[in-house]
Design a protein around this nucleic acid. Structure first.
Length: 505
RNA sequence: GCUCCGGUAGUCUAGUCCGGCAAGGAUGUGAGCCUCUCGAGCUCACGACCCGGGUUCAAAUCCCGGCCGGAGCACCA
């Protein structure tokens, strides 16, 4: 088959699942957006959602915006803006336009004034608790009846600094008894006295999410919004705000439940809890779902993309992906690219008597010759993995890969002693990896596991495996992913030392 | 508590709107082939429509009830 019609084999893969068509979408008429809040590091959930928006824009020859939802000056930080930009770029997402919601403050103020003049917004000076209580009850407060002129005046006061933080907000005249509680006169603007990383100290009255988003989605001409379902209830509010402002075009909303992975919470709170216990030190820890974390671990952006396309759906049901689903894709993509190297974890000495001194040339990949080869010298003293040593039986003949056969004659705490037993490759011999004793280097591999097990923090989420490796390992570049044979795919994580992180088997 | 929304193999997903498949795919697990890796590839096998009623010749699909799960109920996004 491979020889007669190799194209058939590849065709089958190309037929894999594709993204379903977008409702009401036309070629060239689709505009989507990446709407990160720069209040934390980008993680895999953002990546998958971003990919969906990007892939659809691409599928329909449309456009995509990168728009930072940065209207809470107290939460946003410059490093987080960067985290998202870097993350999107890493994924291969190219955006056509970029802006920050905080760029449009003057415009937000204009629309606010417009609403006030229409009698559709009012300044409320009730204490927060009172507002909450009344909203829950579905009852209006006295401020709702203020006249337009009075509201205009109070709004001016808000902008001018006549009110302190928490003393006044601008509210929408919604429907105080609406079943969808987001419509019960939601706050549109609040006062925050805190410098903004992008806008500095210029503003103290900041719009809230729904107001900013409704306007920005219109201004950007967004046609389709793909987002997680916690926003589902806001569609109605956002459409309503636009209708009041004469913006008669709403995006199509497609919502789905969060993308979660087993044992790996995405929430800042839970991740920070792990950092606080000291179990992890940085946000780019390879056990973390942050983009920097999974990148360090050796997950390729192509894998995340393929995973998003093939394993995902627009389901509202709670889901928890098993990491093995992603790993399988990553492994398949890595397999033809990764160099094979010998690494012997928990090493044990192996002495082979009567072994000839040899220099052999071993290919870096069984099929891909273009990946080259390296030379290994053998004298008769080796290190092999502790596990292989343990499994050996006296009298058994084993094959040192690419080298020779050896018959086990003795096992002790010192190691294994064997006798040279021929050069030919024989079927049915156990093949093991080895490292020349005189030419071995120390290798350390960090093996990430689940952060949480059965809802509890897993104290052993990161194991360290040490052993000896062949000298060629020193030549592995920082960031390169190789396969330590019969151990797994590992990414070099340190330039100066041979420290690796295991991605998966 | 209130309001929405969901439940297809261990996991993810297609099918549900417009009833009629042996309920498809992926991953996982087991077996075999291939291979100088326990990787990749190939073959086979295992495994699911939450429960109970109803409508119908026929229900994963439509209706009702229950159970379980998720989201929202901010001067966060």
């Amino acid at each position: 088959m491979e020889k007669i019609a190799p194209e058939l084999l590849t065709v089958r893969k190309a037929e894999e699942k594709r993204l379903p068509p977008l409702p009401e979408a036309e070629k060239g008429g689709v505009v989507t957006r990446l709407p990160p809040e720069p209040s934390g590091y980008m993680h895999i959930g953002h990546a998958m959602s971003g990919l969906l928006n990007y892939l659809y824009a691409e599928m329909y020859d449309g456009e995509i915006w990168l728009r930072f939802e940065d209207t809470d000056p107290r939460k946003v930080k410059p490093e987080y803006y960067e985290s998202f930009k870097k993350g999107y770029r890493w994924l291969g997402i190219e955006w056509d336009h970029e802006k920050n919601n905080s760029d449009d403050m003057e415009r937000f103020y204009e629309y606010a004034e417009q609403l006030i003049k229409m009698g559709k917004a009012y300044v409320c000076t009730c204490p927060v608790e009172e507002i909450r209580r009344l909203r829950a009850l579905g009852e209006e407060c006295e401020h709702r009846r203020l006249g337009i002129d009075e509201n205009l005046h109070l709004w001016g006061e808000m902008l001018a600094g006549g009110f302190g933080e928490g003393e006044a907000i601008l509210r929408l005249v919604g429907d105080i008894k609406h079943m969808n509680t987001t419509l019960r006169d939601p706050a549109l603007f609040r006062i925050i006295e805190h410098p903004h990383p992008m806008a500095g100290n210029r503003y103290r009255v900041w719009p809230l999410y729904d107001f900013a988003v409704s306007i920005e989605d219109y201004l950007c001409g967004i046609t389709h919004v793909l987002r997680t379902s916690e926003f589902a209830l806001r569609d109605e509010l956002q459409n309503y705000i636009r209708s009041l402002l004469g913006m008669n075009r709403n995006p199509i909303y497609i919502e789905y439940s969060r993308f979660e992975f087993k044992g790996t919470p995405v929430s800042k709170r839970k991740l920070r809890a792990i950092l606080e216990t000291g179990l992890a030190e940085r946000w780019d820890d390879p056990r973390f779902p942050t983009i920097e974390g999974i990148k360090r671990r050796g997950i390729l952006p192509e894998s995340i993309k393929e995973f998003t396309i093939t394993q995902t759906g627009f389901s509202y049901a709670k889901r928890e992906y098993d990491w093995s689903l992603l790993f399988a894709i990553n492994r398949r993509i890595l397999d033809p690219r990764a160099r094979r190297l010998f690494f012997t974890p928990d090493p044990v000495k192996l002495i082979v008597h009567d072994a000839p001194n040899l220099v052999i040339e071993a290919p870096y990949h069984p099929d891909k010759k273009e990946l080259g080869s390296r030379k290994l010298t053998a004298t008769g003293e080796f290190y092999i993995s502790g596990r292989d040593a343990e499994e050996m039986k006296i009298g058994e003949v084993i094959r040192l890969k690419y080298l020779m056969n050896a018959k086990v004659v003795e096992k002790s705490v010192e190691g294994v002693v064997a006798k040279f037993s021929g050069m030919e490759v024989q079927r049915d011999l156990k093949i093991i990896q080895w490292v020349p004793a005189e030419e071995s280097i120390e290798v350390k591999v960090l093996v990430p596991g689940p952060l949480y097990l059965n809802g509890e923090i897993n104290p052993e989420s990161l194991r360290t495996v040490t052993g000896f490796g062949e000298v060629a390992i020193e030549g592995v570049e920082l960031g390169e992913i190789v396969q330590f044979e019969r151990f797994g795919f590992c990414r070099r994580d340190s330039d100066s030392e041979c420290i690796f992180i295991k991605a998966h088997d």
